[in-house]
């Protein structure tokens, strides 16, 4: 490409805004969740391979590092879900004015954090807290 061509201002010129950050996070969470399907497959395939394999899989799910990733996937899931609903609203033609865009944006962030907290509070209470 010729260097003398005028270029439009690049990404780093702009001040980060909530709207653009939420937009790229939607993509990033989608990519991260896609990678997470490997864990879903591992769970299903070990369940299909008998009790011994399933017990081994459960050991892996109990490990601390796995758990950190699972919390990450939980948040990515709720974020992608809530922001996906926001996108479906836009597709239907609603919520385009700036005030609403910001309000729903903050709501998506808050909802994803609250729902992740709720799920993990439920998980930890089932495992007896310390586990």
């Amino acid at each position: 490409m010729s260097r003398s061509k005028p270029l439009s201002p690049h990404l780093q010129v702009y001040r980060p805004q909530l709207t653009s950050m939420l937009s790229i996070t939607h993509r990033a969470s989608g990519i991260f969740l896609s990678a997470g399907t490997v864990v879903l497959l591992y769970w299903l395939m070990s369940a299909a391979s008998g009790a011994a394999r399933y017990a081994a899989a459960l050991d892996l799910f109990r490990c601390g590092l796995t758990r950190v990733f699972l919390v990450g996937w939980t948040w990515a899931f709720f974020y992608h879900l809530c922001n996906g609903l926001r996108h479906l609203g836009w597709d239907a033609g609603y919520g385009f004015d700036l005030k609403t865009v910001y309000r729903t944006g903050y709501a998506v962030l808050a909802a994803s954090v609250v729902l992740t907290g709720l799920i993990w509070a439920c998980v930890l209470s089932q495992l007896g807290g310390a586990a």
Binding site: G50, A51, A55, I119, C122, V123, Q126, L127, A131
Partner: peptide, 9 residues
């Protein structure tokens, strides 16, 4: 949530 730590069966 109801299957966490549940046995294979």
């Amino acid at each position: 949530m109801s299957l966490i730590g549940a046995p294979h069966a």
